[in-house]
């Protein structure tokens, strides 16, 4: 329930990386700032703050979004997953494993966003029972910029987890 406390603070309840949370936040707060500055999870990156680079990608109810443009109050009642919550804490997620093994990580600044976007795609395609083409996978990655890798290895990693082969 959104409950007004003072003029510009609002209480929201949501789940972050599987953990229930209730917080009092400014109504104007952006999700990326909530995650990085208020909660202190710094795995989600700020590349542009303008919705252009995808470094800040997180999952909201399994859908990849740019958290730098996303009003934090809109996560009320939803599940937010960041890079810190993508694996079970014991083993890496297959997306992470594939990126490492294929060599899709150089400076790594885009990597959190890439992991979340690939994860989001994987879920979407699985739900729709759709086997995407390489072109569709590349299209899905268009919102994530990477200056180091030339994307080849990232696309390979995405194909591996989405198509389930190597």
């Amino acid at each position: 329930m959104k409950k007004k406390v003072d003029t510009n603070k609002i209480e929201i309840s949501f789940s972050l990386n599987g953990e229930k949370k209730t917080m009092l936040i400014k109504s104007s707060m952006i999700l990326l700032d909530l995650i990085r500055d208020e909660i202190g999870l710094t795995g989600t990156k700020t590349g542009c703050n303008e919705g252009e680079c995808g470094a800040c990608t997180v999952l909201i109810n399994d859908v990849a979004v740019n958290s730098c443009l996303f009003p934090a109050i809109n996560i009320q009642g939803k599940n937010v997953t960041t890079i810190e919550g993508i694996s079970d804490g014991v083993k890496l997620d297959p997306v992470q494993e594939a990126l490492i093994e294929k060599g899709g990580v150089q400076c790594g600044f885009c990597t959190s966003g890439m992991v979340m976007t690939i994860k989001g795609m994987q879920t979407k395609f699985k739900k729709g029972k759709h086997k995407p083409t390489t072109e569709e996978i590349k299209k899905g990655l268009e919102g994530n910029l990477c200056r180091c890798t030339g994307y080849v290895k990232i696309v390979e990693a995405a194909e591996k987890v989405i198509h389930g082969h190597s």
């Binding site: 810190e84 990580v105 790594g108 992991v115």
Partner: peptide
């Protein structure tokens, strides 16, 4: 031999501390 980067693990899990962090 193709060898993944030693630091790929921390960079893939959000654990690497960049200047921004």
């Amino acid at each position: 031999t193709p060898t993944p980067k030693l630091d790929a693990g921390i960079r893939t899990t959000g654990k690497a501390i960049y200047g921004h962090d």
